[in-house]
Design a protein around this nucleic acid. Structure first.
Length: 190
DNA sequence: GTTGCGATAGTCT
DNA sequence: GACTATCGCAACG
């Protein structure tokens, strides 16, 4: 059960706001659905940890396009990671989706993630969730407001507590507090 | 429960 | 040619 698709305007606000408010919303791809429980903000401008810091290249061009589109890239040569372009067009901000709480299509996810020994391991990391949700680089540039891959508000809004920490796995701007997660949720990474 | 390490390929210098 | 916005397994305690 999900509410309406988040509109373009949701994503057009500043990247940190979008990162925080994405928590609790639901990523939907066909029968597979998961609540977003952990995100990271990657800013345009002087955030040297962001891929957009390299400027507009073949890989990063979608980050500088209109908000609400998917930026999917290959990490460490084998895992895909999914981001959502945020902020006004041209600013180079995006939000990395780091973890989901699976809510529908669990059997499908288990089949796609044979390495997961428990349901907690299905989507508790950026490379894991793309596998479980069948998100690939074919979704590069996909419009999340109209396509088969969408983000919905929840049918019933729940009160959540947001925890803020530094981002994971980077070697620049390591102490910027740009990782956001739902406090106490067992499906967050690491 | 934790720590350490190798795999693997696309992207940029 | 170096460097990754990671994961899973093996070897511990």
């Amino acid at each position: 059960m999900t509410g309406p698709v988040l509109p373009r305007g949701f994503y057009a606000r500043d990247t940190v706001t979008v990162s925080r408010e994405l928590l609790g919303n639901i990523l939907v791809h066909g029968p597979a659905e998961g609540i977003i429980v952990e995100t990271e903000a990657y800013l345009g401008g002087d955030d040297l940890a962001a891929h957009s810091a390299a400027g507009i290249t073949n890989r990063t061009r979608v980050i500088f396009g209109p908000p609400g589109h998917a930026y999917v890239y290959l990490s460490y040569g084998m895992h895909e990671c999914m981001n959502i372009v945020a902020g006004p067009e041209g600013t180079g901000g995006c939000v990395l989706i780091r973890a989901l709480e699976p809510v529908a299509g669990l059997d499908l996810m288990r089949a796609r993630r044979p390495a997961a020994k428990t349901d907690r391991e299905l989507t508790s990391g950026p490379g894991k969730l793309t596998k479980a949700m069948a998100i690939t680089r074919a979704h590069y540039g996909a419009d999340l407001t109209t396509g088969d891959l969408t983000v919905h508000s929840p049918a019933h809004v729940r009160e959540i507590e947001i925890e803020v920490t530094p981002r994971i796995g980077i070697s620049k701007c390591e102490d910027w507090p740009l990782r956001f997660l739902i406090r106490g949720n067992p499906f967050v990474s690491r």
